[in-house]
C-alpha cells in the first residue's frame, strides 16, 4: 500500500486552479467543470444508462463540488475526490428512484464445468489483434453488459477498467476495502467475459 505522504506530495494539475477558486476567483470554477464534464457524463452513462440521468448526475456532482470545494484538503487528487462525489450522487439517486434488491455474483457461476464448455484452443475473439474487433456493435454489447451488472459491481468495473483508477484509488472512491474491490472486480470481469463469449459464439 502506498504511504499517505507519497499521495499527499503527488503533483495534481488541478491544485493551482482550485486554490485560485478558493481564494475568491469563483469565475474560474467553470474551467474546472470543463476539464471533467465529459468524463463525468460518460461515467454517468455507464452507471445509469439514461441520457437524462447522466445529465442529472453531472449537474448534481458539480453543484456539490461547488458547494464543498472549500473543504478540499489537497490530500488526494482532485479527480479522485470528484469521482467520490459522483459515485455518492449515483448511490443516493439509486436509493431514491426505486427498490432494487442487491444481487450478488458467485464465483462458482463462472467456473467452466461440463465437457462441452472446454475449449480446445484460444477463441478467435481473444486471439485476433484487438483493432480487428472494435466496432460500434461491440461497443453497444459491452455497454449493455455493464448496465446489466448488479449495481454493487458496476461502479467497480467502470472505475477500474474504464476510468483507469487503481485498486487502492477505487477503494477510496467507493469507501470499501481493496480486498472487496478485487473480489467484485474479478466477478464483474467474468460476468462481462461470459457476455462477450456468448456474443461471439452466436455471431
Amino acid at each position: 500500500m502506498p504511504s499517505k505522504s507519497k499521495t499527499e506530495t503527488r503533483k495534481d494539475e488541478d491544485y493551482e486552479l482550485i486554490a485560485a477558486i478558493n481564494s475568491g476567483r469563483k469565475n474560474l470554477f467553470y474551467q474546472l467543470v470543463k476539464r471533467y464534464e465529459q468524463r463525468i457524463y460518460n461515467f454517468g452513462l455507464k452507471m445509469c444508462r439514461d441520457i437524462t440521468d447522466a445529465e442529472d448526475l453531472v449537474q448534481e456532482t458539480f453543484l456539490n463540488v461547488f458547494r464543498y470545494l472549500k473543504n478540499f484538503r489537497y490530500e488526494t487528487k482532485f479527480k479522485n475526490w470528484l469521482y467520490r462525489i459522483a459515485s455518492s450522487v449515483c448511490i443516493k439517486k439509486r436509493r431514491r428512484s426505486k427498490f432494487a434488491p442487491q444481487q450478488e455474483l458467485s464465483l462458482d457461476d463462472f467456473i467452466p464445468g461440463d465437457e462441452s464448455d472446454i475449449p480446445q484452443e484460444i477463441p478467435e475473439w481473444a486471439a485476433l489483434p484487438l483493432e480487428k474487433l472494435l466496432n460500434r456493435e461491440l461497443a453497444e454489447i459491452v455497454n449493455e453488459a455493464i448496465l446489466s451488472l448488479p449495481e454493487s459491481y458496476r461502479p467497480i468495473i467502470v472505475l477500474r477498467d474504464i476510468e483507469g483508477f487503481s485498486t487502492q484509488e477505487t477503494a477510496q472512491i467507493l469507501d470499501i476495502s481493496p480486498a472487496n474491490v478485487k473480489v467484485r472486480l474479478h466477478r464483474a470481469r467474468l460476468f462481462l467475459k461470459e457476455k462477450l463469449k456468448s456474443y461471439y459464439e452466436h455471431a
Partner: peptide
Amino acid sequence: IQCQACLETLKRTIEICRESESKPVPKLFS
C-alpha cells in the same frame, strides 16, 4: 488449454473495456 483460454479471454474482455469510447456531452445540456 482451458485455463489459457480463460486467461486470454479475460485479458481481451479488459482490453475491450479499456477501449470503450467516450461520448460527447449533449450541447444543449452543456
